[in-house]
Design a protein around this nucleic acid. Structure first.
Ligand code: MN
Ligand code: MN
Ligand code: MN
Ligand code: MN
Lengths: 228, 228
DNA sequence: GATATAATTTTGATTAATCAAAATATATTA
DNA sequence: TAATATATTTTGATTAATCAAAATTATATC
């Protein structure tokens, strides 16, 4: 049985592989993502390699083995189902779900997770819009693009918010920039490094435009609505 | 912040104090209840005494301080609310709730517990009939007696099942000997060391009597129905 | 290409939790 | 009371996870 520390390292390596074009993950990146000193990460990485959960290339970095990916997807499934439960059932705010899920994911049994899944009606995605892997380890690939790839006039739907910072998520909630919501890009100012979007709601009169930095907009994944 | 090991020791000491007429808990009893060697328990007990969670009398045993009792009641509250959630919401069997609660109680946040409490409608007792302490650490005292204190002819209601063994609980469920159910003692055989009870249901025809050993009957806490 | 900078690994130490087995104290029994 | 049994503590060792700081290697810069 993996310890919760091992679980957390493996999940983190998976996430870093996703972020950086599924290349090898360097030690600095891993140690920073784990919040430990580089030496600690090196020691753990050797242990994970012995356990055959990763392949470790000294002085280069690490990547998951098939077995490591399997464990990572189990952890991602747990995390996302727990987040969905916290928001949908217990009424947590979007900005609060991550912190608690980060702990609970290491304490729940398979039985618990499968029952939660059924209770929620087998949701395809978590509150951030991230797809929930199946119990067998299959994960849906959804082709969304970062908001900064869009142009003025584009009609878009928010797909995922790839940032766990509560302050960021609180702001997104305030501006209704949450998964499923439809917007139009009304301005893209490369010089200023900002994008301005406007909510498409017909039920509200106050569709005040909202301006966001280009940096933050890379964390908002969107897909075209198909409408012009 | 106490580690989950510290939490578990404190909760266990509380339970052993309850069992044995709130006297001092000897080291052997503690080490057996924790499933560790006596030396391990001695080392931990010194640590808990430094933390002012217990008072430790060498060669005698331990007892909780006010602070220790406070932590213990927090853990008991968590455990019982989680058990209630697992049975009432996720459909766990009575015999399955304990194992998962034993892990989850160390991973949940205060926010999680208060939301679960509200979601369940502030239940007074868990599925075993054990009272749930309030968030402020108050616990209801219910004066129930062990089944073996009853006499032939007594009409009784099951209050609590003080045994976490899944096999025992499975049997109790089968015989409908669960909290709230009403029975009549139809025989008490001191020589054979058995008691026989019969379910009071009017909706069923098959009220076959059920015989249980005196030893097991001490784990079934009951209260008189008031009817003759 | 030599040197400065950055990343990585190694070394030595620490903390929490545990066990096995030896030592000691207490309780029971003859 | 003396001998025996039981409970408890002590000692020495182990495992997992971590840090600080020194040593090493790779990368970038001049
Ligand atoms: Mn985690
Ligand atoms: Mn998420
Ligand atoms: Mn526990
Ligand atoms: Mn219970």
């Amino acid at each position: 049985m993996p310890t919760s520390t091992v679980e957390q390292y493996i999940k983190t390596i998976y996430q870093q592989e996703e972020r950086c074009a599924h290349d090898i993950v360097p030690m600095k990146q891993l140690s920073e993502a784990m919040g430990v000193t580089p030496g600690t990460a090196t020691a753990m990485v050797k242990h994970l390699a012995e356990r055959k959960l990763i392949r470790y290339e000294p002085r280069k970095g690490v990547r998951l083995t098939a077995g490591g990916r399997e464990l990572a997807l189990i952890m991602v499934r747990r995390h996302r189902l727990i987040e969905t439960f916290l928001e949908n059932v217990l009424g947590y705010d979007l900005s609060e779900v991550h912190e608690d899920a980060e702990q609970l994911e290491h304490a729940v049994s398979d039985k618990f997770i499968e029952r939660i899944d059924a209770y929620l009606g087998f949701p395809p995605a978590d509150p951030h819009g991230d797809p929930i892997p199946s119990a067998e380890g299959h994960i849906a690939r959804r082709d969304s693009v970062p908001l900064d790839h869009c142009e003025t006039g584009d009609s878009i739907r928010v797909a995922r918010l790839r940032n766990d910072d509560p302050a960021f998520l609180l702001l997104m909630k305030e501006q209704r920039l949450t998964p499923g919501e439809v917007f139009v890009v009304i301005d893209k100012n490369e010089t200023a490094g900002t994008m301005t979007v406007q909510h498409n709601a017909r039920t509200r009169k106050t569709n005040t435009p909202f301006t966001i930095s280009m940096g933050n907009s890379t964390r908002i994944m969107v897909e075209p609505t198909g409408e012009q």
